[in-house]
Design a protein around this nucleic acid. Structure first.
Lengths: 342, 342
DNA sequence: ATTGAAACTTTGCGCGCGTCAATTTTCTAT
DNA sequence: ATAGAAAATTGACGCGCGCAAAGTTTCAAT
């Protein structure tokens, strides 16, 4: 790199022998200028290491290149993974993804949406807290900014929702559990989002469909430390009367991870082996589920499909100028992942 | 909220009956104006819902209010937790934290530092990838932006480093393991950062100090899927000749989690009970370590202390105008966490 | 009442870039 | 070679705010 620092586009344009408006055009879309001038600009870029001032750009652009990503709880590797996927795809399309986590708190989510508005993003990918969300705030936000919801739905809000099909995945694993042993009972905590409710309802429907009685065990807890809740609740249930059947389907993997730990602590052998006393299954195929002991049988959510589709729909929305079309919901099917725990 | 939308500070100032420069002062620091005028401005804010344009602010300010947070791998709940802590403290001081994850990749880290520069942050909290980092790029960045390193050190780079004291924590757990059973061997993967090396060296020193022979088992793997590496490597070692002793100290908890899963799969009972064949210990007190089966004995890093001290030092640095003082290193001691696995 | 500092107002420039209209140059196709 | 289209240039305005200087008001302390 040559010489001293370049202060602005004017100066860079002069040094590269091209007019400023053309250089400006180039930075907005390198393909919008003639190949020969593009080459000249890029040659100059090699020499002088200039980058336009983001703040000045974003101030004057009608649309920024910023895309907001909001997840409810980043310490959950499920969301970390999805966020990573989304980030990569946004970057590859020349956008600026910015990641936020609500950390399970309503106020945080509201603050994030608030701040996000002043960032004037072209679009937002939002996985709401769910039940804890300030729905009015979310709705208001979605009306102001092109938004795609994922993971957790809010009826009628935002331009689209992408999630997994609990109505398919739960029957899938219920059927498997019934076929390979005694029918499961359902282990849940107070629902944090619509998925939790849908899963319970799907469980009841599926188990009745198969001619069994639905047993539901709900334990207390209102934080996002699902493992701890599953552990504490599991300990209590196991210590008392135990579960109604020797098979337990958990509302999600994190709960199951806690429950397995509780069973282990009480020396209740988990699995489908001969001397095992309890089978435990989960839902989601959480990144850590394959490393529990025994490894967790579960239904895999299609991470890649969910994040890809979410981004795709958002890009379409952006291309259409954030135009309100028909709100679409896309649900992906789960896949059974048979491991050692059930 | 009254009337229609306010476009700019001029208009808001007029409506609130106060001059624009004073309003500007208020937004930069509400305490810098007289309480009575502050009250008037805030009353107007209630009525009119105006927020200054961030981009215009950041373009003209000498210093932005942005603080960059960079972690090597966000899908690791350890970093997610620390990031959460740091975010909160920055927000409470009126800064704008922005979170980035390198996702274990050198190019990502370089791109992040690159983009971060054009965001002109007042300060940056950086947990580098470590061995994989483009050290020249990191060094260059740290010279341009006031930066505090944490978790993983790079000698002489940045204004300060905050981490945990491997030279204290490793002997602590080695001593415990030796005292309560046979001396441990050390289970590691190719080091991703200086901590890994320091831990191994500390292990050798500690074990020799106690008059035993150091055994080191290194397994292959170069991704950030530590659990998988621990699992795969553990399977192989256990299948072959097993470990040199019946106690294994892992370089970190995530590796230990994988190793426990491997032992479970091979039906090697883990723990310190009578019929157990192997004791496994880790290092870090990862959020999930209490939920392994059996629960993982480990050394806890002081998450809160590390994140708090990092932020504190950065704030001091910012207050001093990013002035280069003496580079300080702060190491926090680990605490033994005795659980079931060792 | 007097004084002096602190806070406020007025005025105006500058930041770096987007964008537009009018003009000139360059390219493509006949 | 030539006309028409496409691309680049010139010149200028605007965005919303920070910031500085000079003058004016407010406030607390004597």
């Amino acid at each position: 790199m040559d010489e001293e620092k370049i202060k602005n586009m004017q100066e860079f344009a002069r040094l590269s022998g091209i007019s400023r408006p053309t250089v400006s055009k180039y930075f907005n879309d390198p393909n919008s200028v003639r190949p020969s001038t593009r080459a000249r600009i890029e040659a100059a870029l090699e020499r002088y290491d200039y980058r336009p001032n983001i703040y000045a750009m974003n101030q004057n652009r009608r649309l920024t290149k910023t895309i907001g990503i909001v997840v409810p709880y980043l310490a959950d590797p499920f969301f970390a993974e999805i966020a990573r996927n989304i980030e990569r795809r946004c970057l590859s399309k020349g956008f600026w993804p910015i990641l936020f986590s609500s950390h399970g708190e309503k106020e945080q989510e509201r603050d994030i949406l608030d701040n996000l508005r002043s960032l004037k993003p072209v679009g937002v990918l939002l996985a709401p807290l769910g039940r804890r969300s300030d729905k009015r705030a979310v709705e208001k936000f979605c009306k102001a900014v092109p938004t795609v919801l994922f993971d957790s739905n809010i009826e009628g809000v935002a331009e689209a929702f992408i999630g997994s099909d609990n109505g398919q995945s739960i029957p899938l694993i219920v059927e498997y559990l019934c076929r390979t042993g005694s029918p499961p009972c359902f282990f849940e905590m107070p629902p944090v989002n619509p998925n939790a409710n849908k899963r319970r309802n799907a469980f009841v429907a599926a188990i009745e469909e198969l001619g069994h009685e639905p047993h539901i065990v709900r334990v207390e807890g209102k934080t996002w430390d699902f493992e701890q809740i599953g552990f504490d609740g599991g300990l209590e249930v196991l210590r008392r009367k135990g579960f109604a059947t020797d098979t337990v389907l958990c509302s999600n993997d994190r709960l199951a991870i806690g429950l397995i730990a509780a069973a282990c602590q009480l020396q209740v052998p988990v699995g489908r082996g001969g001397n095992c006393q309890i089978r435990i299954a989960g839902h989601d195929d959480h990144p850590f589920s394959r490393f529990t002991s025994p490894s967790l049988t579960t239904v895999a959510q299609d991470y890649a499909a969910i994040s890809n589709k979410s981004v795709e729909i958002l890009f379409n929305l952006i291309a259409a100028g954030g135009e309100r079309g028909v709100r679409e919901e896309t649900l992906f099917e789960g896949k059974l992942v048979m491991r050692a725990s059930a």
